[in-house]
């Protein structure tokens, strides 16, 4: 982080991942009626955050892109794991949290289809899992960002390679 990255590095998989995480978190929290109450939607350009249908649409879009990125990353890792190295402990924690988010998120998407009836307890548990894992992921990710923790245990290997 000491050397400023060249402009091309701004469009790496990491940046895309961070952007999608931010978008999903922003629109995800928008699923709860808080942005209006806490004046966030009053900031010019943020009015759409108070429209539940818009935030839901964007959350679904962000989730789709994130799923694509995660599938790419997992497939890429599985095929090149020898040259990439083994995951760091934080990668395991983050992957587990991501898996929880994705699973509960997919459950929500199914729940929102017509003709799907789930007991309220399942929905509440799903909510707590989704929300809890999101908060956990945001916390762990901030920690990793601050302290420069990468996804692989060998920091040398983690450096982007020309593949």
């Amino acid at each position: 982080m000491s050397v400023p990255p060249p402009i091309t590095k701004l469009f790496t998989r990491h940046t895309l991942y961070r952007a999608l995480l931010f978008l999903c978190a922003l629109t995800g929290f928008g699923q709860m009626p808080i942005y209006k109450r806490y004046y966030l939607a009053d900031i010019p350009g943020f009015g759409w955050l108070a429209d539940f249908y818009v935030t839901r649409f964007v959350h679904y879009l962000g989730a789709a892109l994130l799923l694509g990125l995660l599938a790419y990353t997992v497939a890429d890792y599985l095929m090149r794991r020898r040259s990439i190295g083994s995951p760091s402990w934080s990668a395991w924690v983050r992957s587990a949290l991501l898996a929880t988010i994705v699973t509960s998120g997919i459950f929500f998407v199914a729940k929102n289809l017509a003709g799907a009836y789930f007991p309220p307890t399942a929905i509440i548990v799903g909510n707590l899992l989704h929300l809890g894992a999101v908060m956990g992921l945001l916390a762990v990710s901030s920690y990793c960002l601050l302290f420069g923790k990468g996804w692989t245990s060998d920091p040398g290997i983690h450096k982007p390679k020309r593949v």
Partner: peptide, 10 residues
């Protein structure tokens, strides 16, 4: 799109 994106990604 949610079904297609992971397939395309992989």
């Amino acid at each position: 799109a949610m079904v297609m994106a992971p397939i395309a990604g992989a």
